[in-house]
Design a protein around this nucleic acid. Structure first.
Lengths: 348, 348
DNA sequence: TTGTAGGCGTTATCAT
DNA sequence: ATGATAACGCCTACAA
């Protein structure tokens, strides 16, 4: 029936009160007659009055909304967003999510759009295409709070919540070494991405610790993507330096690698070892089941949300916390050459 | 440096012009001196002026934003959201996404929040808990356009874009029958959910067509969830009426079923057949690879976006289109008993 | 305790 | 071609 949502003005008119009185009643302010308050609230409920958030935000220059910008919504990131969501909910904030689809352009557009007064700040994980941070510098200039997570923004001082990616690379590689592999290739992600490099760094550290010479030819930079990993693996397997193990920095890539390995007729873990990253659910249903490094995604998201809210409420635009959470290795069949371990994973 | 974002007022002052002139210049209105226009635009760019969307929306009562409410962001839904995103982008709309986390309460809260002038309309897939449509009726009353997709809202006239779920249930079941299975169980989702019932309906139709008596004991209603499916399958396998095939209405459930089947020491496809739903990527890496019904998720999302925008631009709040897209069966090892077909899937 | 008035940033109507 | 003014819905001094 009533086409337009009711405003305090409508309520005021119906009750022959002034707008400000109604406003006060609705926000249970101090100076207000309990009687008046009661009838106002009654009518408001009856009309199903809801304050216009646009007007509110315009007025108070605060939206109580956090803009979350993510490159995609894969398993890890959507879990992280759930974590952010939870932290936000607890603090009375709303989260709105935009995917950049790994596109720099869309990241810029999304940021700018949300920036035009739609959000109080940002929680950001950058796209793989993003190589500059110009579009984020404006956030600093305007003192708009933002926290980065997962993939952080290079060369920009801001609080961040991330995985210890070096550690992740390290434990995966060391595990392979301990299983007796020594020509270990790594499918790293795009060179421009910090997480790629950190995981690669961890890989190098593990090699070094175990006195294995680092061979650049065993490093492949390719997209975070099953198909790319497939072709990259094919190439590795055809090269003279055929590796005896592969560490991929995502599970999708591990799956691509696995396909290539199987097609080539090689057996895991005996002919070749394989470790992925992210520990997506049901990895242990594959045949062989795939070892993987797990990140505490939900916690990372929730922590990012908390850090954001804390800094926002404290009006703290300067201190840059850096929170680093630890990964955990899940060992499964694909990397478990040693017979003594093998029994554990027998299935069927 | 400049802390607050520049407004047209700032520009006007600097240029000793009136606010309205600046406004006109920026929207390249008709009556404006090209000269003036030029200097205004120049300064605007220099200051990196961006119109305040709150003020704009408040003024024109239009936000150019679509609120998308989804129960979660699993593979299927996040693909659908990508589709919505694409349609929105093409039409100059922004999409903001809220997850209800399958919770009725959060669905209500999210809807109301967004409704308070943050969005022009909604594209909705309901939570599994949602049994009433009261919170959506207000949309109709206020003539706020909305389109439903994937899981539609029961008993509410609105445009919808969905999969032909009956067909999905039908082709999966008929395939199993054709493979020689005849005691086919179905792990259906929650009874309250339309998609569960439709897929179940398709299952029944296939049985009927092939003169197999429908047995209610072979129908299990459980949550869309790997663990529930695991236990439900265990129970089925322990019952007197042990099925010789299982059709699950999601891949997650298929995985749960698979685990239970393997634990029980049964072999797929010979001892028991299995077909899932959604055709998530890498289903064919499982051992055995899992057959599944695919839905054109991206297309469903994009179509939902298009329908929304079309109706919105035409101010059409009455006609309710119903668009139904067709599923497709991907046959893999888990359901392929007939030897003649088996070769196709041999791997390694 | 209640009302008046001004302003948040923008557009639109009406003058000039 | 440009400027003044009201309005969108709300809040908040300040006045009554």
């Amino acid at each position: 029936m009533q086409n337009k949502p009711p405003t305090i003005k409508d309520i005021a008119q119906r009750l022959h009160l002034s707008i400000s009185t109604v406003s006060r009643a609705l926000r249970n302010a101090a100076d207000i007659n309990p009687e008046t308050k009661k009838i106002v609230i009654e009518l408001a409920e009856q009309l199903n009055y809801q304050p216009n958030r646009l007007a509110l935000s315009l007025r108070q220059k605060q939206t109580n909304t956090i803009g979350v910008i993510v490159p995609n919504l894969d398993y890890v990131l959507s879990t992280m967003v759930k974590g952010i969501d939870e932290a936000a909910l607890e603090a009375g904030f709303t989260v709105i999510v935009c995917q950049s689809n790994e596109s720099f352009g869309r990241e810029v557009v999304n940021t700018r759009r949300m920036l035009n007064s739609l959000v109080d700040g940002f929680i950001i994980s950058i796209s793989s295409e993003t190589k500059t941070n110009e579009h984020f510098k404006v956030l600093k200039e305007r003192e708009i709070p933002f926290v980065t997570f997962d993939r952080i923004i290079p060369e920009l001082v801001a609080s961040s919540v991330i995985l210890d990616n070096e550690e992740g690379g390290f434990i995966a590689t060391e595990h392979l070494i301990e299983q007796g592999y020594n020509k270990i290739a790594i499918l790293a992600g795009p060179k421009s991405l910090g997480i790629s490099n950190s995981r690669l760094e961890g890989y190098k550290m593990a090699l070094k610790k175990h006195n294995i010479k680092f061979d650049p030819e065993l490093v492949v930079n390719c997209d975070f993507n099953q198909d790319f990993a497939y072709f990259a693996t094919e190439e590795l397997l055809n090269s003279k330096k055929r590796p005896d193990a592969i560490f991929t920095i995502s599970d999708r890539m591990a799956i691509g690698a696995m396909l290539a390995i199987k097609k080539r007729g090689l057996k895991m873990p005996d002919d070749i070892g394989l470790v992925g990253f992210n520990n997506e659910p049901s990895l242990d249903l594959f045949s062989p089941s795939i070892s993987s490094v797990e990140q505490p995604s939900f916690e990372i998201g929730k922590m990012a949300g908390k850090v954001f809210i804390e800094q926002f409420l404290n009006n703290d635009f300067s201190t840059a916390k850096e929170i680093i959470l630890k990964p955990k290795l899940y060992v499964r069949e694909s990397s478990c050459k040693m017979t003594k371990n093998k029994d554990k994973f027998d299935r069927n």
